[in-house]
Design a binder for these strands. Structure first.
Length: 276
DNA sequence: TCCCAGGCAAGGC
DNA sequence: GCCTTGCATGGG
């Protein structure tokens, strides 16, 4: 890391664990490094070190506010955990993933990342996103920014296929053209989750699951409950009703966990994937 | 080799 | 409307 000595210090790590935050599948732009993680967001980079005594975010001093917001440092996760504690499976899942936080990511970045994520695995998603930045992102002097909608819109499906995106290649090209052509991602900030979800689903490659992930990680709309293959497997733990329809599952899980559904989903997802 | 991965879209009923 | 199928590619 060559960004100097500026550090954001997190003294109490009861609600902050870098490994859990980054490896719980909400972002694909990080690299495990010696003693921590290098994290990328938009056109910025930081290094997160986690030790016994606490965590430190090493970054450029002018990016202090950006990273405090990105890591959601102003939110009281103790209060969230207390609200969820009595709900199904939370007595197991919250202690297992107690250091998870929901990152406040960029709309566009979350959209592209989760279009890539469809029927894909985490190592491969990370690789595709890394190549996307490497080839189309602005050179920031040692690393690459996430590509702009304009930069991505100028490439066609064949380009993204060569990058290894598989059958998602056309989704990437078409979604980029839609956003570059005027689809207003920023306007959805002011919509409720159901309205924003319907709007996002008009984009190619955005179905129910991808839309929910974009809303949760790209808009911090924490009342959504993304249902993926892991949550489908877990559903029987929470609702022993034999339900197999995904939309019904989603509705029932939303009803159980309410406005904190996004957090509950993240604790559940992390524990299941890590076999905790 | 085979199954699976933070699913989506299209086509058949 | 709901259900099934095809889809690219790499990990385990």
């Amino acid at each position: 890391m060559t960004d100097g000595d500026y550090r954001i210090i997190i003294e109490d790590c009861g609600d902050f664990d870098a490994a859990q935050i980054l490896e719980c599948g909400q972002t694909f732009r990080y690299r495990k490094a010696d003693g921590g993680y290098t994290v990328y967001a938009r056109d910025k980079r930081c290094f997160v070190a986690q030790g016994e005594g606490g965590a430190q975010i090493v970054c450029s001093p002018q990016d202090d506010a950006f990273w405090r917001d990105y890591f959601d440092l102003q939110t009281d996760y103790g209060a969230i955990k207390r609200r969820l504690s009595a709900l199904p499976d939370m007595s197991r899942s919250i202690p297992f993933g107690k250091g998870i936080r929901i990152l406040r990511q960029d709309h566009w970045e979350a959209l592209i990342g989760f279009i890539v994520s469809a029927n894909n695995n985490l190592p491969r998603i990370k690789g595709i996103v890394a190549r996307l930045c490497e080839v189309l992102g602005e050179d920031m002097g040692g690393w690459r920014a996430f590509p702009t909608p304009r930069a991505m819109a100028q490439k066609d499906a064949a380009f993204y296929r060569d990058l290894g995106a598989g059958y998602r290649a056309a989704y990437l090209a078409d979604a980029a053209r839609a956003v570059d052509g005027g689809f207003d991602l920023g306007a959805l900030e002011r919509c409720d989750s159901d309205t924003a979800r319907k709007a996002l689903r008009a984009l190619p490659g955005v179905g129910p699951k991808v839309a929910d992930c974009v809303l949760l990680y790209g808009y911090h709309k924490t009342d959504v409950f993304p249902v993926d293959t892991w949550i489908k497997k877990a559903y029987a733990l929470v609702c022993q009703d034999g339900c197999a329809n995904v939309e019904t599952m989603r509705a029932r899980l939303k009803a159980i966990y309410g406005d904190d559904g996004g957090y509950a989903q993240q604790y559940l997802f992390y524990r299941l994937r890590e076999k905790g």
